[in-house]
Structure formats: structure tokens, C-alpha cells
């Protein structure tokens, strides 16, 4: 049974439908890569799945439970966690307090939190070094790590990750993606929305391209490069035809 199943989802902002009739599934332990151009509807899709935009039609089923249109904070409690783009953390709070707030989505258990914290610190020692620094004083990449760490604290069943590469130095991307890969292998279903397909694709299992709010193509990640090239050639021919 898939951990996350999205069926015929249509959603947008106010009355603007941005995503039309999208279906997808993610298995536990799997990473789905979603690509597409600016404005194609990738972020809107994630926001609709996580409850920030109420879908006008379609459904979101997580672990057999219907979570369509659940408010984002409720969805987070159910184990569906969105990490917003642009490495959004709470800028005036310390790194440690940002991680602490990660517990909001789950049970607050000091022992479990201490263990998780240790785990995060071992992967990203920088978060331990800067534990008492304000989050706003971190670099973009460090903030992204912090945002992911905060999500990790709650151990969600499904992780939705919007453009983890945005504002992140190139050299920081592989450790971040490796962390996500390891995280997924612990049984979490992960969706990564990304523009930088080339760097991200090796860490993912399947890929899906969104164009004009709809699924343009879907394939196993290793085939993505070739499939995209063919699709782009076809588009250019159409535009100049």
C-alpha cells in the first residue's frame, strides 16, 4: 500500500486553479522527484497536499487515512510534513529552539528529543556548534539543514520538501540529499520538488514532471534525462511550428 496517494487533485489560490487533476503515489522508503518550470504548479501541488490550499477536487490519502483539506497544522500532527521553500526557519529564535519546536507535530518526549537531537547533530555538526545562535545568522544552506532537522524531529510519515536547493551553496547539496535519502530509507515517503534535476535525480527513485499544472511525464529517475530531452525537443518543434 502506498504511504501517500494523491488522486485527481485540482487546487490553486483563491479562484485560480494552478494544479489540475494530478494523481501520484509514493511508497514508504521511496523518494519521488517532482520537476517543472517556474509557475508550473509544483509548489502549489505540495501546498495543496499539505493543506495550505484547500483542493477544489480530488483527494489525498495518507497511510489509508483521508487527509484531504486538513489544516496544515492538523496534517502535521497526522504525520504529513511540508518543508517550505526558501529555507524558512524562525529567524529570531535560536537554532536549538527551532529544533525544539519541531516537537509540536508529535508527542513531546524529552528523551526521544534528546536522542533525535544527537542523531541530527551527528549528521550536521554545524547545528550543534551554532545551537545558541539566532537562526537568522545562519547561511541559507545552514537554514535549510535546520528546517529539515526541525521536520525530522517529528518523524513524519510523509515528508514534502519544496526546493531544498534554493539559496543553498552547491557543495552543501549532496549532504542534504544524502540525509534525505537515509531518512527515506527509514520508511518515510519523501517528495522533493526541485529545479536542479541533475544534482537531485541520483538520490531519487522516480521522477514526475509538471507542466501547466498537469503531469507531463513520469518515469523512473534514471530515465529522466533522456525522456526530458525528447519532451523538450517536441515542445520546441511545437512552438515554432
Amino acid at each position: 500500500m502506498p504511504m501517500l496517494e494523491v488522486k485527481n487533485l485540482t487546487a490553486g489560490y483563491g479562484d485560480i486553479p494552478v494544479v489540475r487533476d494530478i494523481s501520484l503515489t509514493v511508497e514508504p522508503g521511496e523518494i519521488l522527484l517532482i520537476g517543472g518550470e517556474n509557475g508550473a504548479g509544483k509548489s502549489t501541488l505540495l501546498r495543496a497536499i499539505s493543506g495550505f490550499n484547500t483542493p477544489t477536487s480530488g483527494s489525498v490519502i495518507m497511510d489509508g487515512k483521508n487527509v484531504t483539506g486538513l489544516a496544515p497544522e492538523r496534517a502535521a500532527h497526522e504525520g504529513l510534513r511540508l518543508v517550505l521553500d526558501n529555507h524558512r526557519v524562525f529567524p529570531e529564535l535560536t537554532v536549538h529552539d527551532n529544533l525544539r519546536l519541531g516537537q509540536a507535530a508529535g508527542r513531546r518526549d524529552p528523551d526521544a528529543f534528546a536522542k533525535t537531537l544527537e542523531e541530527i547533530h551527528s549528521v550536521f555538526p554545524i547545528l550543534k556548534e551554532k545551537a545558541q545562535a539566532r537562526a537568522r545568522d545562519l547561511s541559507g544552506g545552514q537554514q535549510q539543514i535546520l528546517a529539515l532537522g526541525q521536520a525530522f524531529v517529528a518523524r513524519p510519515k510523509v515528508l514534502l520538501c519544496d526546493e531544498p536547493s534554493m539559496g543553498v551553496a552547491q557543495m552543501l547539496l549532496p549532504p542534504i540529499l544524502a540525509f534525505l535519502r537515509k531518512w527515506a530509507e527509514s520508511g518515510t515517503a519523501v517528495i522533493i520538488v526541485e529545479q536542479h534535476l541533475k544534482v537531485t535525480q541520483p538520490y531519487t527513485d522516480r521522477a514526475l514532471i509538471v507542466s501547466r499544472g498537469q503531469v507531463a511525464l513520469e518515469c523512473p529517475s534514471p530515465e529522466l534525462t533522456d525522456r526530458l530531452a525528447a519532451w523538450n525537443a517536441q515542445r520546441m518543434a511545437a512552438a515554432h511550428g
Partner: peptide, 23 residues
């Protein structure tokens, strides 16, 4: 013009998967 720019390497990053094109 659209024709000229379509081949311009500086523009490729805008297209999905475009970073493959001239990597």
C-alpha cells in the same frame, strides 16, 4: 527574437531539465 534565444545557452536554465543541455 524567440528563434535566436531558443538556442542561447544563457536561457537554457529556464527550461525544465535545461541544465542538462549544456552540461
Amino acid at each position: 527574437s524567440p528563434e535566436d534565444l531558443a538556442k542561447d545557452p544563457a536561457v537554457q536554465h529556464l527550461f525544465v531539465g535545461g541544465d542538462h543541455a549544456h552540461a
